[in-house]
Design a protein around this nucleic acid. Structure first.
Length: 570
RNA sequence: CGGGGCGUAGCGCAGCCCGGUUAGCGCGUCUGGUUUGGGACCAGAAGGUCGCGAGUUCGAAUCCCGCCGCCCCGACCA
């Protein structure tokens, strides 16, 4: 491809609206242009990468028996009403204004189920894996980070249809393997976390994550990747807090001005693990007091799971005083004005010698033995894991707490949609059941952006062979001046193309500096540099973009050398 | 939806507080010439509803009010 005739508007300066490296580079490298908040056009170079990712996804989906569909983004709202998701989606779903009854699909469970209901009637018709690569529309309240969080994006979404839970398990496992293959082939460093099953009900769900400071999810990971979990469910190994031999009876003492655990530690020399922090939440309109150890942070997701509550919020200051008789800082599990459920973190089980608020401003209780003095409904793990704690697998390594970007999600749906839409089949005994479904998503643009987040340097992108828009960037230096440079370039372009190597040929009348900088920005794996300086001695320069390694190669050896270098990079 | 920032040539910005020539600068673009191994140089040129609307004023990019758009933080995220 001749660069002089290509639409490839690279930018020297960083666009104002781009904050993160991948966004900046995608704009500078002429891959995308923004049309509106969260809405992007792909330019030819970016679309080449888009297509390469889609090809990899297709190959791996086809390999597990997936059949590709193409469903409409324009949907009748009626079908969404039948599953109750018009409400559930709320503002996220776009509604067509001048045509009552149409919406833009944010995902396709309903539509797949509609087609399954039409034609899948027998256990003999299953298993099926149906997928598509299609544009999704979600009215994100706050689009950000370039294509990482857009209002319109490309998703590979797959759905499995099975007659048995064993069948669903098999489909789910196939997808997990396919996803591993896809991200590996794309050159992403990723990890898998168990996700909290949330409101969808106890079905299994895993997220494929890419570590990034710009991620919106927080995960605890062990460095050898033997363990990784969303912070919402992560656990760790902590030293047990021993009981004290002396166990005097409980007594009140004045603690003026001590409103935080740190105050108690510093002003009253109380060890952190002997402080019991009380946090009051309102779970489905009922107050619950939660006792945490020291400065441990309460994990709302864990608490919600433990309580089985649908709505959970911290209590307001006025509620606190009304219920306990004290303000935040002096609240405790003993002597509450209003009786309420008391839950404690499992670290506090059987612990004595504790200090806690006396439910009287400016006073605390000491020598508390939870077993003797308090009524604790239950002990649960409700604390948030902190970086540096030990991996729960017992491998002995410390956990890191990192931000991450979700690039894929696999989910055992069960029968939620098939039941709602009446997609049923008859089993061997002629008995009717709802189809058992799974759903599996991959964000195409997120793969692209995450790849660039992980593969760039101060000069630009460093593509892998699998995603590179072109394999080789052929730079002709001073072609106007030197007929031999031009001739050799054209010969090489032809030879590479004939060998199945995608080559971008910079034949522009630009100075060498411009070409070098653009080549490093665009980041093709190999640069083949033809200039008078080396050519006069019968040589060509070949540069490996990622390592910066340069070698001078005899003209006759270039083709073989490039082929072996590309092979080594693949 | 709450908080903050920004909107001036294709891109990046100055000017705005403190109203007053013909609204500047860098990059890019066009023409001619000289250059050609890490973002060259000289000469010339084109390109602006100063986001939109309404006001104050003799006079508004600049001050007031309203709206729109974009970015960031927070809330939200099947």
């Amino acid at each position: 491809m001749r660069q002089s005739t290509q639409f490839l508007p690279t930018l020297k300066e960083v666009p104002n609206e781009a904050q993160i490296p991948s966004h900046q580079l995608m704009v500078r490298a002429a891959m995308v242009r923004q049309l509106a908040a969260g809405v992007f056009s792909f330019l030819p170079l970016g679309y080449r990468v888009h297509k390469k990712i889609c090809d990899i996804v297709r190959q791996e989906m086809d390999a597990i028996g997936g059949q590709e569909f193409h469903m409409p983004a324009l949907n009748p709202i009626e079908i969404w009403e039948q599953t109750g998701r018009v409400e559930a989606m709320g503002d996220v779903m776009f509604h067509i204004k001048n045509r009552e009854g149409l919406v833009l699909a944010p995902t396709h469970e309903e539509i797949i189920t509609f087609h399954a209901r039409q034609h899948v009637h027998s256990y003999r018709d299953m298993p099926q894996i149906w997928y598509q690569i299609q544009t999704k529309f979600r009215n994100e309240p706050r689009p950000k980070s370039g294509v990482l969080r857009g209002r319109q994006f490309t998703m590979k979404d797959a759905y499995s249809l099975d007659a048995t839970t064993e069948g669903l398990d098999a489909a789910y496992d196939k997808h997990e393997q396919a996803y591993r293959n896809i991200y590996t082939r794309c050159g992403l460093r990723f990890f898998i976390v168990g996700a909290s099953s949330g409101a969808m009900g106890g079905s299994k769900s895993q997220e494929f994550m890419v570590e990034s400071p710009h991620g919106e999810d927080t995960c605890a990971v062990c460095d050898d990747l033997s363990y990784a979990a969303n912070i919402e469910v992560a656990t760790s190994i902590l030293a047990a807090i021993p009981r004290l031999a002396e166990n005097p009876s409980i007594e009140e003492f004045a603690t003026p001005g001590a409103n935080t655990i740190d105050d108690l530690i510093q002003k009253y020399s109380i060890p952190e693990e002997r402080c019991a922090k009380s946090v009051v939440y309102v779970a489905d309109d009922q107050p619950v007091l939660v006792l945490m150890c020291g400065n441990d942070e309460l994990n709302e997701s864990k608490l919600q799971g433990v309580l089985g509550a649908t709505a959970l919020r911290p209590a307001e200051a006025e509620e606190l005083f009304a219920w306990t008789g004290a303000h935040a800082g002096s609240i405790g599990p003993i002597g509450l004005r209003t009786p309420m459920r008391v839950i404690a973190d499992q670290r506090l089980q059987h612990v004595n010698g504790l200090v806690s608020g006396a439910n009287k401003d400016g006073f605390h209780l000491r020598n508390i033995d939870l077993d003797r003095d308090a009524t604790i409904e239950a002990y649960h793990d409700v604390r948030t894991v902190r970086a540096g704690e030990l991996c729960p697998t017992g491998c002995g390594k410390e956990l890191r707490v990192v931000n991450a970007i979700e690039v894929g999600h696999i989910f055992k749906l069960g029968t939620k949609y098939s039941s709602a839409l009446g997609a049923t089949f008859l089993d061997e005994n002629g008995k009717e059941h709802p189809i058992i479904m799974g759903s599996y998503g991959i964000g195409i643009e997120r793969i692209m952006a995450c790849f660039i987040e992980q593969n760039h340097d101060e000069r630009g992108i460093t593509w892998s062979m699998s995603l590179a828009p072109y394999h080789v960037h052929l730079l002709g230096l001073g072609m106007k001046k030197s007929e031999s440079v031009r001739a050799v370039c054209e010969e090489l372009e032809k030879a590479f193309t004939a060998a199945g190597i995608d080559v971008l040929f910079d034949d522009r009348d630009e100075s060498p500096g411009v070409k070098f900088n653009d080549a490093d920005l665009l980041g093709m794996p190999l640069q083949v540099i033809v200039g008078d300086k080396n050519l006069s001695a019968g040589n060509i320069e070949v540069k490996v973009r990622r390592t910066g390694e340069r070698r001078i190669v005899a003209l006759d050896d270039v083709r073989a050398d490039v082929r072996s270098l590309l092979h080594g990079l693949a």
